[in-house]
């Protein structure tokens, strides 16, 4: 259900950017979504379609780039992609810092003036 919240937030950002750039039509929205965020792309697509009706983004393509979870070990500095274990693959330490994979970012907007 949080897909709808995400889409509503996306639209408030789209409106802002469209206004700043005097876009009359949005044709493509590219999102980067971290795998840790549990977002189900198909549901997001459906929510986008519903919310975009009668807006500048009607019929726009929503392109979703999944981002794998990447961590850096705070102990040895090793960087690695997480499969199912959040444990340094080099030294076994649990103290990790997330580099990417927990984000929901609007990367680009395409549209016409």
């Amino acid at each position: 259900m949080h897909e709808l919240t995400i889409i509503t937030n996306i639209f408030s950002i789209i409106d802002e950017i469209a206004e700043e750039n005097q876009l009359t039509k949005i044709t493509r929205v590219t999102l980067k979504i971290g795998e840790l965020r549990h977002v189900y792309p198909e549901m997001l697509q459906n929510a986008f379609e519903i919310v975009s009706k009668d807006t500048k983004a009607e019929n726009a393509v929503l392109h979703i780039k999944p981002i794998r979870v990447k961590m850096r070990c705070k102990h040895c500095g090793h960087e690695f992609f997480v499969n199912n274990s959040y444990c340094c693959k080099k030294c076994g330490d649990y103290r990790l810092k997330i580099i990417e994979g927990d984000e929901i970012i609007i990367e680009t907007l395409e549209g016409d003036r």
């Binding site: 995400i6 937030n9 996306i10 408030s12 950002i13 950017i17 750039n21 876009l23 999102l31 984000e103 929901i104 970012i105 609007i106 990367e107 680009t108 907007l109 395409e110 549209g111 016409d112 003036r113």
Partner: peptide, 14 residues
Amino acid sequence: MEIKVMKKVMQANI
């Protein structure tokens, strides 16, 4: 035209 946005969608909540 393509616009680089790079905005966090959940920024308002954060």
